[in-house]
């Protein structure tokens, strides 16, 4: 095999390792405050540690409808009227730096570390 090919194999292997490592690292970073935003505008902010009873938030994003389930320590999109359903399949978010995204509706749910004011 040519030397050039070997260099590229090494480079791609490095990307794979770094990518998986970073992904796992980001998933383990913490926080308990879920921030729901549509089109970059924050629409709701929930401290998941203060939730005692599960409840639902119905969001009309202007591009479509999403129903968000808030339960103690977790948040999930349980319904979306978009075709891909990726946000629903992403399941519960319990922490970590990786947001739930519903691309067609411009909806993002992120976990942040900070306390809620007031």
């Amino acid at each position: 095999m040519k030397k050039k090919t070997l260099i590229w194999i090494a480079a791609f292997a490095l990307i794979l390792l770094a990518g998986v490592g970073l992904w796992l690292y980001l998933g383990s970073t913490g926080g308990t405050v879920a921030v729901i935003s549509v089109d970059g505008e924050e629409v709701d902010r929930v401290d998941l540690t203060k939730v005692t009873e599960p409840y639902y938030i119905d969001i009309d994003t202007g591009n479509g409808r999403n129903i968000v389930q808030v339960s103690p320590g977790a948040i999930a999109v349980v319904y979306a009227d978009c075709p891909d359903q990726i946000c629903v399949h992403q399941g519960q978010l319990t922490g970590g730096g990786i947001p739930i995204v519903c691309m067609p509706h411009r909806l993002v749910i992120q976990i942040e570390g900070g306390e809620i004011d007031a």
Binding site: I15, L16, G19, V20, L22, I98, V101
Partner: peptide, 20 residues
């Protein structure tokens, strides 16, 4: 589009999936 830089957290896994 979503004006949320937080979704750049997907960059590592998209790099992995891109290579594969």
């Amino acid at each position: 589009v979503v004006k949320t830089p937080g979704i750049l957290a997907y960059a590592p896994i998209l790099a992995v999936s891109g290579v594969i």
